[in-house]
Amino acid sequence: MKKSAVKIGIAGIGGYTGSVLYSILLNHPHGDIVWVSSEPSHVGKKIKHLFPHFMEKGEREVISLESALEMEVDVVFTALPHKIPMKYAEKIVKRGIRLIDLSADFRFKDPKKYEKWYGVAHSCPGLLEKSVYGLPEIFRDEIRNAEIIGNPGCYPTAAIIALYPLLKERIVEFPVIIDAKSGASGAGRAPSEGNIYCEVNEGLKPYGVFTHRHAPEIEEVLKMADTSAEAVFIPHLVPMTRGIEETIYCRLKEEIEEDKIFSIYNEFYKDEPFVQIFDSSTPPLTKYVLGTNKCFLWMKKEGKNLVIVSCIDNLVKGASGQAVQNFNILFGFSEETSLTQLAIYP
């Protein structure tokens, strides 16, 4: 056990986001993982039996969430499917434990919006007012004192970081078009017909057209920058394991020099360690951010037409890495702690 370390519980170790979270926090100099939990079929197994790549780092045994929540910790990460974390949130918060939720259960302030898009009434709507949307580049000050952090979705992370500075300037016509593409790990580890090898390999598939749950999440935050914001969001599944690339099409209200566009972004993100303005004649690849907590942005303008490219790793900046970034802010550590890894390239 690390001396004077923050005591951590991880719920949902059996999924991709849970395993990536565990791998990042293992090396955190100020964190001590007290327990990990997962679904009932995993209870009693060692982490290395769920994910053999952990080897000697995976000797810890998985326990049930019910028994885990009786143990003393300072913060709980819930890397669980939507609709589950809210069942345990009140118990966690009442004990003075901070909650960082990687599901969608605490991303919206309006319980009716959650019910509309996730198909169930929110079981603890009173806690939504206490929750903070965990996008540090925009809500850092609110995150510092949060009891509950709703970690953003992967697509919204890439889209909001790409668009927010521009919308703050009120120079964009609406709607903006977000053409988003994600690797298959975004669908999670549970197998389904839509994400098995033969269905995904050598193909490109749009899905959730006008029905994807990340669309209202994107618009809700963009409207904080410009109340008239409107976005058409179309996600696609591409045959790769991980990574998100979003090509975003904007129409400017009036023609502006491309240098001015870059200056808007450079000024807005000048102190942000994880946002990289990609100053190159060619757009970035998803491989450039693979395994990192970085978001790479690239812009190109012609007349009043502006194209923005945003790349993140959906499992790191789009999920677990961002959760650790929020953890660092919440407990007063350097934001980059345990998140300085370079991309796995090629």
Rank of each mutant, 00 (worst) to 15 (best):
K168M: 14
S281I: 02
Y114F: 05
M55K: 15
I234M: 04
E230V: 08
N305H: 12
A5R: 05
C311E: 01
G183T: 00
C154S: 15
S131A: 07
G291K: 05
R140F: 04
L128I: 07
F139K: 05
H212G: 00
C154D: 08
Y249E: 10
A5K: 03
D226H: 13
T157Q: 09
Y22I: 06
P239G: 10
T211V: 06
V62K: 12
C311I: 02
V316Y: 15
I8A: 07
R170H: 15
E142M: 04
E56S: 13
S185F: 08
E255R: 14
G44V: 15
Q341P: 08
E199S: 14
F233L: 07
K130V: 04
H212C: 01
E115G: 04
Y114K: 00
V93C: 00
K304Y: 12
W298M: 05
V221L: 04
I171R: 14
E147M: 05
L204I: 11
S23V: 06
A121T: 02
E66G: 12
T247D: 08
E115Q: 07
Q276R: 14
M71F: 08
G119N: 04
D141H: 06
D105M: 00
M240L: 06
G31Q: 01
V75C: 15
S192E: 10
A11N: 11
A229M: 13
G150D: 02
E66T: 14
S103I: 00
Q341D: 10
I47V: 15
L26D: 05
K45M: 15
V316W: 12
F174H: 14
H82K: 03
K7M: 06
V221M: 05
G203I: 09
L204V: 10
I178N: 09
L342N: 11
K253N: 13
Y118D: 01
F54A: 10
S185A: 08
N151C: 04
M1F: 09
N326F: 08
L204G: 09
I143M: 03
Y249T: 06
G134V: 00
A229I: 01
E66C: 11
D271V: 02
V324M: 04
G150N: 00
K130L: 05
A79Q: 03
G96D: 01
T337P: 09
P125M: 08
E115V: 02
H30I: 02
S310F: 13
I13E: 10
G318W: 03
L65W: 07
A215I: 12
S338P: 09
K270W: 03
N328E: 06
R242M: 02
G150W: 01
K205S: 11
S67R: 15
F262D: 10
V34A: 12
S23G: 12
V6T: 11
E147T: 00
L135Q: 04
A89G: 03
E255Q: 14
I312E: 09
P175H: 12
L128H: 04
I248V: 12
K294D: 00
K83P: 00
E115L: 03
V172A: 13
V93T: 04
D179R: 09
Y197R: 11
G31S: 11
K205M: 09
Y249N: 08
A180T: 03
K57I: 03
S4F: 15
E147Y: 06
S228R: 14
I160N: 09
S103A: 03
I177F: 15
L297Q: 08
K301I: 10
G194S: 07
A68K: 10
V6H: 02
T282Q: 08
N27D: 12
